[in-house]
Design a protein around this nucleic acid. Sequence first.
DNA 1: TACTAAGTACACCGATCTGTTTCCAAACCG
DNA 2: CGGTTTGGAAACAGATCGGTGTACTTAGTA
Lengths: 201, 201
Amino acid sequence: MTEPEKGPLGLRRGRGARERILIAARQLFREQGINSTGIDQLCSVAGVSKRTLYQHFASKDEVIAEHLRRFDPDILPGVFDCADLTPRERLLAAFEINAPLCPFIAAAVEIQDPDHPARALSRDYKTAFATRFADTAREAGAAHPEQLGEQLALLLDGASARGRVFSTESFATAAAIAAVLVDNALPTAAALPGARGGTGS
Amino acid sequence: MTEPEKGPLGLRRGRGARERILIAARQLFREQGINSTGIDQLCSVAGVSKRTLYQHFASKDEVIAEHLRRFDPDILPGVFDCADLTPRERLLAAFEINAPLCPFIAAAVEIQDPDHPARALSRDYKTAFATRFADTAREAGAAHPEQLGEQLALLLDGASARGRVFSTESFATAAAIAAVLVDNALPTAAALPGARGGTGS
DNA sequence: TACTAAGTACACCGATCTGTTTCCAAACCG
DNA sequence: CGGTTTGGAAACAGATCGGTGTACTTAGTA
C-alpha cells in the first residue's frame, strides 16, 4: 500500500505501467495540451487502468510534474555536448531543431497557479538552458556570456511561441538573429563572411 | 438570435451588459487564463446574468473571439503612430512596454483546435504586427524590412513567453537584441564597432 | 399609460472532470 | 504451494463545466 515505490533492483516493479503512462502523457500533452487531456483518456492510451495510475501517481499534477522532469536531461546534452563542434557552432546548433511548442512554456501558460510544481520546473529548466548557453558562450569567448545566454534563450522561446501561433516553424528566423548576436559578441569572429542571416520567414 | 446589434443611437441597447462581459473577460482571461474562467464566474464578475450573456454571445467561444478582437486596434496604433519619433525610435519603442502574457499567445496555447476563430485571430494579429514592424523598418531604411519585422516580432513573443515562465519582465533583454538588429539593418548607423556585412547584400 | 426590449433569478440538463472504491486476475518468488 | 505484488474492469462520488428554459422585473419610449 502506501509507497512501495522501488524494489531492490531499481525498476523491478510490474510490467512498465508507469512508463507507459508517461509515454502516453508526453504524446497527449503535446498533441492536445495538458488541460484538455483527461485522466480517462490518458489511461486508455497508456493501456492502464485508472487504479494503476493512481497507484503510481498521487494526482494528475504529479503526472504533469514527472512528465516535465523527463525532459530535463533530454535536449540539453544532445545539443551542447557535441565535442566535435566549436563553441560558436554549438551555440547556433541549438536553433537547428524542429520542435512543436516547448512543453515548459505550454505548462507555464496552461497552469495558472505560480506555485504549481510544473511552474517551478519550467523556471528551473529555462534557467538551466540559459546557463548552458552562457557557459558555452563563455567558452567561445563572448564578451558578456550571461547576457548572450539569456538572449539566445529568449530567441528559442520566441520561436517556440511563434511556431505555435502559426503552424510553420520559426526557428530559422531565430537562428538568423542568433547568428547576428553571436557574431556581435565574439570579437574573434569579426571577419567572417558568415553567409548566415538571409533566412527570413 | 438574429442580430439586433445596433440601434439608431449606436449603443442604445440595454445598460451595457455586453461591454461589462467583455471587460470582465479581459480581466479574468488575463489573470487566470481562458480555460480556467468559467461562464458562471465570468457572469458574476461582469454583474450579468447567465441568460443575458447567452443573449449576446452564442457560446463561450464567441466571447473569446470577441475578447481578442478588442485587442486589434489597441496596441498597434499606440506604438507605431507616435509621429514625434524617428522610425528607428518607433521600432524600439515597441519594447518599452510592460505587459503580462500576450493574450494571443495565451489563446493559441490554451485552445487546441487550430481552426478555432481565436487561433485565426491570433495568426492575423501576429501577422499584422510583423507587417507594422516591417513597414516602419522600411520607412527607417532597413535593408530587409520584412525580415527585420519578423525578427522584431519574434523578439516580442519571446519576451512575452519568457515573462510568463519567470515572473519578471524580459522585455529589456528583447530590447537589447532589437537594438542590435536595428543598428545592424540600418546603414546610417554603420559607425558601430561591430560593423559587419553578414546581413547586407 | 401601455408596449417592448433588455436584463435578472434560479432551477436544471447532460457531459465531463479528478479521484476513490470494490472485487478480481495474473505474475512473481520464496 | 502460498503469499505478496502488480495490474485490470467498472461503478461511483462530488464537483464543475457549458448551455437552456421559464417566469419575473426593469428601463426606455411613444
